[in-house]
Protein backbone atom coordinates (compact mmCIF):
# COMPACT_ATOMS: atom_id res chain seq x y z
CA UNK A 1 0.00 0.00 0.00
CA UNK A 2 2.79 2.42 0.95
CA UNK A 3 4.49 1.64 -2.38
CA UNK A 4 1.36 2.70 -4.23
CA UNK A 5 1.02 5.89 -2.23
CA UNK A 6 4.70 6.75 -2.88
CA UNK A 7 4.23 5.98 -6.58
CA UNK A 8 1.17 8.22 -6.51
CA UNK A 9 3.43 11.12 -5.60
CA UNK A 10 4.87 11.00 -9.14
CA UNK A 11 1.46 11.69 -10.55
CA UNK A 12 0.78 14.06 -7.65
CA UNK A 13 3.57 16.39 -8.70
CA UNK A 14 2.18 16.38 -12.23
CA UNK A 15 -1.38 16.93 -11.02
CA UNK A 16 -0.17 19.86 -8.92
CA UNK A 17 1.32 21.44 -12.03
CA UNK A 18 -1.83 20.85 -14.07
CA UNK A 19 -3.84 22.49 -11.28
CA UNK A 20 -1.33 25.33 -11.25
CA UNK A 21 -1.84 25.84 -15.00
CA UNK A 22 -5.64 25.99 -14.48
CA UNK A 23 -5.21 28.48 -11.62
CA UNK A 24 -2.82 30.67 -13.61
CA UNK A 25 -5.07 30.76 -16.67
CA UNK A 26 -8.02 31.66 -14.46
CA UNK A 27 -6.20 34.26 -12.37
CA UNK A 28 -4.32 35.97 -15.17
CA UNK A 29 -6.70 35.81 -18.13
CA UNK A 30 -10.00 34.98 -16.36
CA UNK A 31 -10.68 31.77 -18.27
CA UNK A 32 -11.41 28.32 -16.78
CA UNK A 33 -9.54 26.39 -19.45
CA UNK A 34 -11.17 23.02 -20.03
CA UNK A 35 -9.01 22.48 -23.14
CA UNK A 36 -5.77 22.53 -21.11
CA UNK A 37 -4.98 18.81 -21.00
CA UNK A 38 -6.27 18.14 -24.53
CA UNK A 39 -3.69 20.63 -25.83
CA UNK A 40 -1.01 19.11 -23.56
CA UNK A 41 -1.90 15.60 -24.72
CA UNK A 42 -1.63 16.65 -28.37
CA UNK A 43 1.84 18.07 -27.66
CA UNK A 44 2.83 14.87 -25.86
CA UNK A 45 1.62 12.74 -28.78
CA UNK A 46 3.53 14.90 -31.26
CA UNK A 47 6.58 14.06 -29.17
CA UNK A 48 5.91 10.32 -28.93
CA UNK A 49 5.11 10.13 -32.65
CA UNK A 50 8.54 11.60 -33.36
CA UNK A 51 10.35 9.26 -30.93
CA UNK A 52 8.51 6.32 -32.56
CA UNK A 53 10.16 7.47 -35.81
CA UNK A 54 13.59 7.47 -34.20
CA UNK A 55 13.94 11.18 -33.40
CA UNK A 56 16.06 11.99 -30.35
CA UNK A 57 13.78 12.18 -27.24
CA UNK A 58 14.89 15.67 -26.19
CA UNK A 59 14.41 17.07 -29.69
CA UNK A 60 11.02 15.38 -29.91
CA UNK A 61 10.06 16.81 -26.49
CA UNK A 62 11.07 20.28 -27.67
CA UNK A 63 8.95 19.85 -30.82
CA UNK A 64 5.94 18.69 -28.75
CA UNK A 65 6.31 21.58 -26.29
CA UNK A 66 6.61 24.15 -29.09
CA UNK A 67 3.58 22.64 -30.87
CA UNK A 68 1.42 22.76 -27.72
CA UNK A 69 2.59 26.29 -26.86
CA UNK A 70 1.70 27.47 -30.38
CA UNK A 71 -1.70 25.71 -30.34
CA UNK A 72 -2.51 27.08 -26.88
CA UNK A 73 -1.42 30.58 -27.96
CA UNK A 74 -3.69 30.29 -30.99
CA UNK A 75 -6.66 29.39 -28.76
CA UNK A 76 -5.79 32.24 -26.43
CA UNK A 77 -5.58 34.69 -29.34
CA UNK A 78 -8.99 33.53 -30.60
CA UNK A 79 -10.52 34.05 -27.15
CA UNK A 80 -8.90 37.49 -26.82
CA UNK A 81 -10.02 38.47 -30.33
CA UNK A 82 -13.62 37.26 -30.25
CA UNK A 83 -14.61 36.71 -26.63
CA UNK A 84 -12.71 39.37 -24.65
CA UNK A 85 -15.87 41.18 -23.52
CA UNK A 86 -17.86 38.04 -22.73
CA UNK A 87 -18.64 36.52 -19.35
CA UNK A 88 -16.40 33.88 -17.76
CA UNK A 89 -19.07 31.23 -18.31
CA UNK A 90 -19.13 31.89 -22.04
CA UNK A 91 -15.35 31.68 -22.30
CA UNK A 92 -15.34 28.44 -20.27
CA UNK A 93 -18.00 27.02 -22.60
CA UNK A 94 -15.80 27.87 -25.59
CA UNK A 95 -12.90 25.92 -24.04
CA UNK A 96 -15.24 22.96 -23.40
CA UNK A 97 -16.11 22.96 -27.10
CA UNK A 98 -12.42 23.13 -27.98
CA UNK A 99 -11.72 20.25 -25.55
CA UNK A 100 -14.34 18.09 -27.27
CA UNK A 101 -12.98 18.97 -30.72
CA UNK A 102 -9.33 18.39 -29.81
CA UNK A 103 -10.12 15.11 -28.05
CA UNK A 104 -12.00 13.89 -31.11
CA UNK A 105 -9.07 14.85 -33.36
CA UNK A 106 -6.55 13.28 -30.95
CA UNK A 107 -8.43 9.98 -30.64
CA UNK A 108 -8.83 9.89 -34.42
CA UNK A 109 -5.11 10.48 -34.97
CA UNK A 110 -3.61 8.51 -32.09
CA UNK A 111 -6.28 5.95 -31.11
CA UNK A 112 -8.57 5.58 -28.06
CA UNK A 113 -8.27 3.72 -24.74
CA UNK A 114 -8.09 0.24 -26.20
CA UNK A 115 -6.11 0.92 -29.36
CA UNK A 116 -4.00 3.98 -28.78
CA UNK A 117 -1.63 3.26 -25.88
CA UNK A 118 1.81 4.51 -26.85
CA UNK A 119 5.11 3.78 -25.22
CA UNK A 120 6.27 7.07 -23.73
CA UNK A 121 9.96 7.38 -22.78
CA UNK A 122 10.34 6.76 -19.04
CA UNK A 123 13.83 7.94 -18.11
CA UNK A 124 13.00 8.16 -14.40
CA UNK A 125 11.31 4.78 -13.98
CA UNK A 126 14.24 3.06 -12.21
CA UNK A 127 14.24 2.79 -8.37
CA UNK A 128 16.13 5.53 -6.55
CA UNK A 129 16.31 3.73 -3.23
CA UNK A 130 14.44 1.13 -1.16
CA UNK A 131 13.44 1.36 2.49
CA UNK A 132 12.26 -2.04 3.71
CA UNK A 133 9.62 -3.06 1.20
CA UNK A 134 9.04 0.47 0.00
CA UNK A 135 10.59 1.33 -3.36
CA UNK A 136 11.03 5.00 -4.20
CA UNK A 137 11.40 5.49 -7.97
CA UNK A 138 13.46 8.34 -9.45
CA UNK A 139 10.26 9.80 -10.88
CA UNK A 140 9.04 10.81 -7.40
CA UNK A 141 11.78 13.37 -6.56
CA UNK A 142 11.91 14.50 -10.20
CA UNK A 143 8.16 15.12 -10.28
CA UNK A 144 8.14 16.84 -6.87
CA UNK A 145 11.16 18.99 -7.75
CA UNK A 146 9.59 19.97 -11.08
CA UNK A 147 6.32 20.94 -9.35
CA UNK A 148 8.13 22.90 -6.65
CA UNK A 149 10.43 24.59 -9.17
CA UNK A 150 7.59 25.75 -11.41
CA UNK A 151 5.47 26.92 -8.44
CA UNK A 152 8.35 28.93 -6.97
CA UNK A 153 9.38 30.26 -10.41
CA UNK A 154 5.83 31.41 -11.16
CA UNK A 155 5.58 33.01 -7.70
CA UNK A 156 8.86 34.89 -8.26
CA UNK A 157 7.87 35.88 -11.80
CA UNK A 158 4.62 37.38 -10.56
CA UNK A 159 6.10 39.29 -7.63
CA UNK A 160 9.67 40.18 -8.61
CA UNK A 161 9.58 41.06 -12.30
CA UNK A 162 8.03 43.98 -14.19
CA UNK A 163 6.19 41.59 -16.49
CA UNK A 164 4.83 39.68 -13.47
CA UNK A 165 3.52 42.91 -11.94
CA UNK A 166 1.84 43.73 -15.23
CA UNK A 167 0.24 40.28 -15.25
CA UNK A 168 -1.06 40.85 -11.71
CA UNK A 169 -2.40 44.25 -12.73
CA UNK A 170 -4.06 42.66 -15.75
CA UNK A 171 -5.71 39.98 -13.61
CA UNK A 172 -7.00 42.54 -11.10
CA UNK A 173 -8.34 45.26 -13.43
CA UNK A 174 -8.11 44.30 -17.13
CA UNK A 175 -9.63 47.57 -18.40
CA UNK A 176 -7.45 49.78 -16.22
CA UNK A 177 -4.38 47.71 -17.10
CA UNK A 178 -4.99 48.52 -20.76
CA UNK A 179 -5.43 52.24 -20.21
CA UNK A 180 -2.14 52.43 -18.33
CA UNK A 181 -0.42 50.94 -21.38
CA UNK A 182 -0.16 47.24 -20.46
CA UNK A 183 -0.47 45.22 -23.68
CA UNK A 184 -3.21 42.95 -22.41
CA UNK A 185 -3.79 40.87 -25.57
CA UNK A 186 -0.07 40.13 -26.00
CA UNK A 187 0.41 39.18 -22.35
CA UNK A 188 -2.70 36.99 -22.40
CA UNK A 189 -1.44 35.08 -25.44
CA UNK A 190 1.93 34.69 -23.67
CA UNK A 191 0.18 33.16 -20.65
CA UNK A 192 -1.69 30.72 -22.90
CA UNK A 193 1.55 29.73 -24.66
CA UNK A 194 3.40 29.16 -21.36
CA UNK A 195 0.56 27.11 -19.93
CA UNK A 196 0.44 24.96 -23.10
CA UNK A 197 4.18 24.29 -22.88
CA UNK A 198 4.15 23.32 -19.18
CA UNK A 199 1.09 21.11 -19.64
CA UNK A 200 2.82 19.11 -22.36
CA UNK A 201 5.85 18.52 -20.13
CA UNK A 202 3.58 17.37 -17.30
CA UNK A 203 1.61 15.03 -19.56
CA UNK A 204 4.88 13.51 -20.82
CA UNK A 205 5.99 13.03 -17.19
CA UNK A 206 2.83 11.25 -16.03
CA UNK A 207 2.04 9.35 -19.26
CA UNK A 208 4.20 6.26 -18.52
CA UNK A 209 2.34 5.72 -15.22
CA UNK A 210 -1.15 6.38 -16.62
CA UNK A 211 -1.02 4.16 -19.65
CA UNK A 212 -0.16 6.48 -22.50
CA UNK A 213 -3.42 6.67 -24.47
CA UNK A 214 -4.89 9.94 -25.70
CA UNK A 215 -8.30 9.71 -24.01
CA UNK A 216 -6.85 9.11 -20.54
CA UNK A 217 -4.30 11.90 -20.85
CA UNK A 218 -6.78 14.36 -22.34
CA UNK A 219 -9.24 13.45 -19.55
CA UNK A 220 -6.75 14.61 -16.91
CA UNK A 221 -8.65 17.91 -17.00
CA UNK A 222 -11.02 16.60 -14.30
CA UNK A 223 -8.03 15.99 -12.02
CA UNK A 224 -6.57 19.41 -12.89
CA UNK A 225 -9.87 21.12 -12.01
CA UNK A 226 -10.15 19.20 -8.73
CA UNK A 227 -6.62 20.30 -7.77
CA UNK A 228 -7.37 23.91 -8.77
CA UNK A 229 -10.45 23.79 -6.55
CA UNK A 230 -8.31 22.77 -3.57
CA UNK A 231 -6.39 26.02 -4.15
CA UNK A 232 -9.73 27.84 -4.59
CA UNK A 233 -8.50 28.88 -8.08
CA UNK A 234 -6.14 31.37 -6.35
CA UNK A 235 -3.52 29.93 -4.02
CA UNK A 236 -0.40 28.44 -5.64
CA UNK A 237 0.88 26.62 -2.47
CA UNK A 238 -2.57 25.11 -1.76
CA UNK A 239 -2.79 24.00 -5.39
CA UNK A 240 0.60 22.31 -5.03
CA UNK A 241 -0.57 20.56 -1.85
CA UNK A 242 -3.85 19.59 -3.53
CA UNK A 243 -2.00 17.90 -6.40
CA UNK A 244 0.13 15.85 -4.04
CA UNK A 245 -2.87 14.81 -1.93
CA UNK A 246 -4.80 13.77 -5.03
CA UNK A 247 -1.82 11.76 -6.31
CA UNK A 248 -1.54 9.95 -2.97
CA UNK A 249 -5.31 9.28 -2.87
CA UNK A 250 -5.14 7.86 -6.36
CA UNK A 251 -2.16 5.67 -5.38
CA UNK A 252 -4.00 4.50 -2.27
CA UNK A 253 -7.14 3.65 -4.24
CA UNK A 254 -5.11 1.65 -6.76
CA UNK A 255 -3.72 -0.53 -3.96
CA UNK A 256 -7.12 -1.48 -2.54
CA UNK A 257 -8.78 -4.17 -4.66
CA UNK A 258 -12.31 -3.25 -3.55
CA UNK A 259 -12.10 0.31 -4.89
CA UNK A 260 -9.41 -0.03 -7.56
CA UNK A 261 -11.88 0.01 -10.44
CA UNK A 262 -13.37 3.28 -9.15
CA UNK A 263 -9.99 5.03 -9.16
CA UNK A 264 -11.09 7.43 -11.91
CA UNK A 265 -13.85 8.74 -9.66
CA UNK A 266 -11.39 10.19 -7.10
CA UNK A 267 -11.12 13.67 -8.71
CA UNK A 268 -14.90 13.97 -8.96
CA UNK A 269 -15.27 12.97 -5.31
CA UNK A 270 -12.75 15.64 -4.35
CA UNK A 271 -14.67 18.23 -6.43
CA UNK A 272 -17.99 17.21 -4.83
CA UNK A 273 -16.58 17.32 -1.30
CA UNK A 274 -15.02 20.75 -1.90
CA UNK A 275 -18.23 22.10 -3.47
CA UNK A 276 -20.24 20.81 -0.53
CA UNK A 277 -17.78 22.23 2.01
CA UNK A 278 -17.65 25.68 0.39
CA UNK A 279 -21.41 25.93 -0.16
CA UNK A 280 -21.91 24.89 3.48
CA UNK A 281 -19.82 27.87 4.58
CA UNK A 282 -21.75 30.21 2.24
CA UNK A 283 -25.04 29.11 3.81
CA UNK A 284 -23.58 29.73 7.26
CA UNK A 285 -22.37 33.19 6.18
CA UNK A 286 -25.72 34.08 4.63
CA UNK A 287 -27.68 33.09 7.72
CA UNK A 288 -25.42 35.04 10.01
CA UNK A 289 -25.31 38.00 7.68
CA UNK A 290 -29.03 38.63 8.04
Amino acid sequence: MVNSVIAGLTSGGGYALLGLCVVLTYRLVAVVNFALTAVGALGAFVMVSLTDRGVNALLALLAGVVFAAALSALLGAALVRWFAGHKEGTKAAVTVAIFVALTAVGVRLFGGNSTGAHRFPNPFGAPLFTVGDVVVPQSVPVSLAFALLITVAVGLLLTRTRIGLKLQALSERPGTAEVVGIPAPRLAVGVWAGVGAVTTMVVVLVAPRLGGDFSTLSGLISTALAVAMVGAFRSLPLTLAGGLILGCLEGLSSSLDAIQKYQGVVPFLVILVLLWWRSRREVWDTEHGR
Partner: peptide, 16 residues
Amino acid sequence: RTTFRTLTVEQNLLVS
Protein backbone atom coordinates in the same frame (compact mmCIF):
# COMPACT_ATOMS: atom_id res chain seq x y z
CA ARG B 1 -9.90 55.37 -7.69
CA THR B 2 -8.86 52.46 -9.84
CA THR B 3 -5.63 51.43 -8.12
CA PHE B 4 -4.29 47.91 -8.46
CA ARG B 5 -5.15 47.12 -4.85
CA THR B 6 -2.88 44.10 -4.35
CA LEU B 7 0.18 45.89 -5.74
CA THR B 8 2.19 48.28 -3.60
CA VAL B 9 2.27 52.02 -4.28
CA GLU B 10 5.62 51.69 -6.04
CA GLN B 11 4.49 48.67 -8.08
CA ASN B 12 1.39 50.62 -9.19
CA LEU B 13 3.70 53.27 -10.57
CA LEU B 14 6.18 50.82 -12.08
CA VAL B 15 3.60 49.00 -14.21
CA SER B 16 2.73 52.16 -16.08
